[in-house]
Amino acid sequence: MTTASDTEPAPPLVLTPYLFLLPAMLVTLAVVLWPVAETVWMSLHNFILFKPRNVPFIGLGNFWRLLHDEVFWLSLGHSLVWISLVVGLQFLLGLATALLLNQSFWWRSLARSLVIIPWALPSVIIGLTWTWMYDYNVGVLNDVFLRFGLIDKPVAWLAQPNSAFFSIVVALIWQGFPFFAVTILAGLQTISAELYEAADIDGATRFQRLRFITLPAIADVIATALLLRTIWVANSLDVILVMTGGGPGYSTYTLPLYAFLKAYSGMEFGYGSALAIMLTLLLLLVVFIYVRRAARELDQ
């Protein structure tokens, strides 16, 4: 990671910003630093939770094993498709929603509050409710589709590899798009009305206004929201865990789910930690690319 001093003229050493940062640093580091250090230690050992008397140091053995583990590569592949689909579609739907909600109409405050509901529910409920709606025997989706003649016999949504994967993607888009809608909506509020008035005078079409005024003005907010959401989705596993537990077979395995199952079902905390660290390193790569790119704009 390049430090600020590599690319910028050395800024004067003032104390104020550090003082402003101190509380945040204290709160987060106090809680995170020790557990993460412990996890790194575990990843270098063959640490099995129920064998506390026998924890041999194996260096990078867990990482070596991981590179030869086909389930790791499979999960990584799923994770990539997964993150791009879920975050991408959440974002597009969220952006559309925010743009609609930013206009003025009589039921706006109602619409704004209703749209947030999926996001206001715990993942356990979301997972169970969607599993139940997708149910082969008593699910409401099969019932509705049958009534409208879209299918001629019930579909076992969660029992086939592809449909299981996309069924969960739909549930996750539902869960997460309100986040983008709300975040982008707040970003839209910071755009000065004068800009639009000027554009109106110049006779800009609505598409031109979106392309040349709205989007550039909220680019920073969008980029940050995308980055944070990518990290969040990349790490989340609760909805998958409830809906399929990774199945059928390995069809819905993602990296964090695999790490979780290794750690809590196999009690192999050493290997689970290695998987988690690998995931963090891969995410770090994404962030590095983002920060390099964003740095140019941020540091103006």
Binding site: M1, T2, T3, A4, L21, A24, M25, T28, L29, V32, V36, T39, L227, L228, I231, W232, A234, N235, L237, P256, A259, F260, A263, Y264, F269, G272, S273, A276, L279, T280, L283, L284, V287, F288, V291, A295
Partner: peptide, 17 residues
């Protein structure tokens, strides 16, 4: 920039572990 990145990294580690 290092500090900003540091705050992101904190967020990146799977909580389960």
């Amino acid at each position: 920039r290092l500090l900003m990145t540091q705050f992101l990294v904190i967020n990146m580690f799977p909580i389960v572990l």
